[in-house]
Design a protein around this nucleic acid. Structure first.
Lengths: 340, 340
DNA sequence: CATAATTGCGTTAGCACTAACGTAATTGCT
DNA sequence: AGCAATTACGTTAGTGCTAACGCAATTATG
């Protein structure tokens, strides 16, 4: 699903979808069993069932909704003959809600259905259901203790205050080269042997043959990296570009890319190419914007299994060229190139 | 929170609440950062941002909503100047949505905010956020493969078809006595030494002193148990009553209780009491309905740490007595007793 | 090629909920 | 006691979504 790829950014939408799924599933079950009840009624009725007559606000507080919602729902329940509304004798403002005998009968008969729901959830979701419940409870607690909006604002303030710099490789940063690249490699692909070698000993495999490595540093943190490999005299490959997942969208990738291209020019390189994978759409779009042009076929004798995209740096060409070749190979990528 | 106590039964409501929390938190952040965007717009805009111009239904499919929702949202986005609507030249039915330049600018500037959101979620929810994402993904997958409503109906059919019987103890069932009791004991309390002893060797601690044990069997499964302890000549204690959490609501508890009381009468017992805890509201209500009366103080020299409720069986008394004593000790329990 | 079925979209009515307001009752303060 | 503040609730307007319908365009079928 597309939404899952957005991860933390689409929490709300996905949770809503899940919520609706459960509501409609419950209604389907109630209908199927001939129960005269709707899923939305459940929290209120069950609370009254367990706790006896209570006021509107107490119910609202307990089930985490506004008093208005409970008040309106009560109208419906009264109309359905499930709930009785009474003024409280002690406090005239209060409206005391109590189940009718009909409701008590209905709810009593609902025992097996609730039981089936619990068991159905277990059989349908298995351990994942338990995990979801546990995670929800943990998140509800965490959000009460550390409100999300405030936490985000703190991060935002820190982000915009911190300077974003590009710094060259130095031995003390070797582990970051590994960390930043293994993150995305292990997420979408797998670490190939050639990766492991290069990431573990960049001095030998990148610098010594005449290449360069850059890091993006935000404040004190290293959030991205990029390597310019020297394949042969004047021929360079852009590779090992990785930005920490939680720091994407800051422009670090583009800054690294521009720096690497700058270095390629500074060394008076003649040919610059890269290999990538069609999954990495945002990266591909960035390469195009920077002047790389998608080639009709993958590179002959590629070092990587995951490589299904081959691009060559043609600064003068712009993004207009290569359309036909692209269209043949990848409808989706074409659309992107037209758009950008 | 009350809803969490309902576990699987209130999935929908809790997920909705969480969903709304994330939506409003996101809106708060966007407002706080001065971004001209609303949280509900995000899935559509982001999809167009990543995939270029697409049709209404494609967007709807991708973000898991109806075409109507996307169509109406598009109205708003067009009014806000973020999206352009165009008829498709190739297929006149289709309405192609594309981001305006303004939207592209806005979204481009949103990078740091999205980044902050990801980091804020991490700092606010920590590992729980990851756990929630993982659980959601797993549940979405599981629900596609095994629809919930169908699974529940299957369980329901099996439940109503299976006969519920009460059977006396026999050595082969010893482990079930332990299993069924340790489940609720470990959930709300903790296993005390006296529990462990009695549950491990019921023949010595229950049967030999003159007590009895019963099991509730549903179809082939043992789903509940209950013990009648003989304290001294004619004095019995009802104890170790437990029904599997996933099988509650079927009336097994009541059947077990009635059987135990029947056995108490059959043995011409003179005094029957029980000790329990005020947390166990549904159990307490059942005891009252069966003829137990709440006592004003806990029992002198109780064996259990968790015992804060003491009830004596007075079959003639009904549920009307003991109100005053109750009211003094426990406002909540009082309400229940008035109600039932 | 005519007709039926399907597809894609917009519109409307309706639902569940919230925010905001108004009203009545109660509590707090001097 | 008198007045303000608070509390409890109902009502209204509005939001975000779905279901259901209708229309137009496209595709399938005899």
């Amino acid at each position: 699903m597309y939404l899952s790829s957005l991860a933390e950014l689409a929490f709300g939408s996905r949770l809503k979808a899940l919520s609706d799924y459960f509501y409609t599933a419950a209604d389907e079950v109630y209908r199927g069993c001939g129960a005269q009840i709707e899923s939305r009624w459940f929290p209120v009725l069950r609370y009254l069932w367990e706790n006896g007559p209570t006021t509107v606000s107490e119910v609202a507080m307990a089930i985490g909704q506004t008093h208005s919602a409970v008040s309106q729902l009560t109208d419906k329940l009264v109309r359905a003959g499930m709930v009785r509304r009474r003024r409280d004798a002690e406090d005239g403002r209060r409206s005391v809600l109590a189940l009718t005998d009909k409701a008590r009968d209905s709810l009593g008969a609902l025992g097996p259905i609730w039981c089936s729901i619990r068991r159905g959830v277990a059989s349908s979701l298995g351990a994942e259901g338990k995990a979801l419940l546990a995670a929800m409870a943990a998140c509800e607690k965490a959000l009460q203790e550390r409100p999300l909006a405030a936490a985000v604002m703190v991060e935002h303030a820190a982000l915009v205050a911190a300077p974003l710099e590009i710094v060259p490789y130095e031995p003390a940063l070797r582990e970051h080269f590994y960390r930043l690249n293994s993150q995305w490699l292990e997420r979408d692909f797998k670490l190939e042997d050639i990766d492991r070698a290069m990431l573990s000993d960049p001095e030998r495999y990148v610098l010594q043959p005449g290449g360069a490595i850059f890091f993006a540093r935000l404040g004190g943190e290293l959030i991205g990296t990029c390597a310019l490999l020297c394949e042969s005299a004047g021929v360079y490959e852009l590779s090992k570009m990785g930005v920490d997942e939680t720091f994407r969208g800051l422009g670090a990738g583009r800054r690294l890319l521009d720096t690497a291209i700058g270095e390629f020019h500074r060394r008076q390189g003649e040919h610059l190419f890269l290999e990538s994978n069609s999954k990495l759409k945002t990266a591909l779009r960035m390469y195009e914007q920077a002047g790389f042009v998608l080639q009709p076929a993958t590179r002959l004798g590629s070092h990587y299994e995951r490589a299904d995209v081959y691009m060559i740096y043609q600064p003068g060409a712009g993004a207009a060229r290569g359309k036909k070749a692209v269209r043949k190979r990848q409808a989706r990528a074409t659309r992107t190139s037209q758009e950008v």
